[in-house]
Amino acid sequence: MDAVARLAESVREADTVVALTGAGTSTASGVPDFRSESGVWNRFDPEDFHYQRFRTDPAGFWADRVELHETMFGGDIEPNPAHDALAELAEDGHLHAILTQNTDGLHAATTPAELVELHGNAHRAVCDSCGRRTDAASVRKRVESGERPPRCEDCGGVIKPDVVLFGERLDERDLRRAREHARRADAFLAIGSSLSVEPAASLPRVAARSGAVLAIINLDETPVSPMADYDVRGDVTEVLPKLAERVEDA
C-alpha cells in the first residue's frame, strides 16, 4: 500500500482533520509564488510592502501595491484540482478546517470547511484607523484614478490591503483559532507550504505534539518533514485528488 493510500486510511479514521495550505496550493491556478527564481520577490522589493512604508509613504505604497496585485492576481485565477479535492473532503465530512497562508481567496470560493486566512485576503481592503472593510477592487480603481492614498469614507483614515504586511503581526484572533484547530486535530495535513514562515510554520509541530497524525504534501522537503508520519513529495494538484478519491472509495 502506497503512502497516499495509508494517509487516506488515517484521514478516514480521524474525527477531526485540519489542513494548512501554502503557496504551492495555488501556483497551478496562476498565482505566482514568492521565493522561487521566478517568484514575486525577484520582481519586486519586499521592503516596498512593509507596514512602515505604508505608514510613511502611503501614496507610493499604493502605487506599487496596484502593480503587485496585477502581477499576482491579474490573470484568469480559478480554483484548481487541489482546491476542489479539499472542498470534496470537506463536503463529505472528512475535512473540518483549512488554515491558509494564501491571500488569493480561492479557498473561500470553494470550501464549506471553517476557513482561517492567516495572512488576510487580497480581495478586501480595510481602514487602518477604524477597521471598516471594503472590496479591494473598488479601492484599486480609486488609486488608478489618482486617489493616493485612498481614504475611508467613514472616518477619513488611510485604507490598506486587508493582508498582513511585512512588519505587521498576524491577527491574534486568527492565530488563536489556528492554534486551537491544530491542537484539536487528529490528522493534520500541511499542503504546498515550505513551512519556513512563522508563526504558521509552527502549526504542524503544535498538531504533532498534541498527538495528531502529521502529513506533509509538498514538492520539496520542509523543515518539518523529519517529524512527519507521511512525507508525500509531489504536485498537490495530483496528490490531493488521489487522496480524496481513496478516502471516498473506502
Rank of each mutant, 00 (worst) to 15 (best):
E114G: 11
V18R: 01
L118N: 08
G156A: 06
W41F: 03
T110R: 15
T25M: 15
D33W: 01
E91K: 15
P149R: 08
L68C: 06
L95E: 14
A3F: 12
D33M: 00
E198D: 12
E248A: 11
E245Y: 03
G74W: 12
F49W: 05
G120Q: 07
A109Q: 15
F73T: 06
E47C: 05
V158M: 04
A207I: 10
G211H: 06
C130N: 04
H94R: 09
V206P: 07
R35G: 00
F44N: 00
V4F: 05
S26R: 00
H69G: 08
D64W: 02
D249K: 06
G131S: 01
V232Y: 04
D57R: 10
G74F: 14
A85G: 13
S26M: 01
S129D: 14
A185G: 07
L20T: 09
V239S: 09
H119A: 10
V4H: 04
K141D: 14
V158E: 02
A23H: 02
L203F: 11
G60Y: 10
V247W: 00
Q52V: 14
D48R: 06
E245V: 01
E91L: 15
D2T: 10
D57K: 05
V139D: 11
M227D: 13
V116Q: 07
P241E: 05
P79L: 05
A97S: 15
D104S: 13
F54H: 08
A113C: 14
P199E: 03
L214M: 06
A85C: 12
Q52H: 13
E70P: 00
R176T: 12
N80A: 08
V206W: 10
R179W: 09
T237Y: 03
Y51E: 09
E117G: 12
L203P: 12
Q52E: 14
R233H: 05
D76I: 11
I159L: 13
L99D: 15
V213S: 08
V206S: 05
D104V: 15
E117F: 07
C152N: 09
V239N: 04
A250S: 04
N218V: 06
R65L: 11
F61A: 01
V164I: 13
N121K: 06
T100I: 14
R179F: 08
P81W: 09
F166A: 12
T16K: 09
H94K: 13
T21R: 02
Y230S: 04
H107N: 11
C130L: 07
